[in-house]
Design a protein around this nucleic acid. Structure first.
Lengths: 115, 115
DNA sequence: TAGCATGCTACTATATCAATAGCAAGAAAG
DNA sequence: CTTTCTTGCTATTGATATAGTAGCATGCTA
């Protein structure tokens, strides 16, 4: 019911004053938030709700809808005629997530080494 | 009680096969996960449990402990004599989060514009 | 011995999430 | 017009996760 969307400048987890990075962590640190943004950006074409739902394996519609609302409020994605797409700002965030992808592979490799 | 730690190669949210990026999203996309790693890395010195607790404003000890366990299992942080620190791998992840910090400021600015 | 800090664990209330069902609106076909 | 899809959700129920607080065991320190 209460769906508080973290925005910079308002109290968020980790920062009563709402520092930008903590607000972003609060927004993206929710289940599926980064996954949804990632899939949408990777797709490079507008997605319908159900397309997005199948791109994210096993996401429930309720959660998907919640994340979509939040990400739209944060102006990272938008809904157009064709479906959902990332905004310019969302694309920037996606770009900022790219290094994580590189590190994740490194991480996977390191964990495999250390058995 | 049931605390399933997402690791690459095992089924995770967004990827039944456990793709590295989805596993990392699953790990970091939990409440406080990025915040804890961030504060620990920024501090650039070992932190005690309570220091970390105060660095993260308002985190409850239960959640902090859960995140610490997960991040340790994932080999992103470790516990030494002096306290908790980021591992080499954790530092890499922190570095990969830096672009997010830059974007978050841009994001905060853009949202302020659009009132 | 009596504090005091540390690193937690325990507990209850609330919030969030998963899983599934299903509905309203629009398009397309017959 | 009516049946049949697809789409974009909402509703519901039960399971987990988190918040907020209390407090305990351990190892100093005084």
């Amino acid at each position: 019911m209460t769906n508080k969307i973290p925005l910079p400048g308002t109290p968020v987890r980790g920062s009563a004053s709402g520092s930008p990075i903590m607000a972003l962590f609060d927004l993206l640190g929710r289940r599926w938030a980064m996954g949804v943004l990632w899939q949408l950006a990777e797709n490079r074409a507008p997605c319908t709700f159900r397309e997005l739902q199948s791109l994210c394996e096993m996401i429930s519609p309720g959660v998907l809808n919640a994340r979509l609302k939040e990400l739209r409020s944060a102006d990272l994605i938008e809904k157009t005629d064709g479906g959902y797409t990332v905004t310019k700002l969302g694309q920037e965030v996606y770009n900022a997530l790219l290094p994580l992808s590189a590190v994740s592979k490194q991480w996977a490799h390191a964990l495999k080494e250390n058995h």
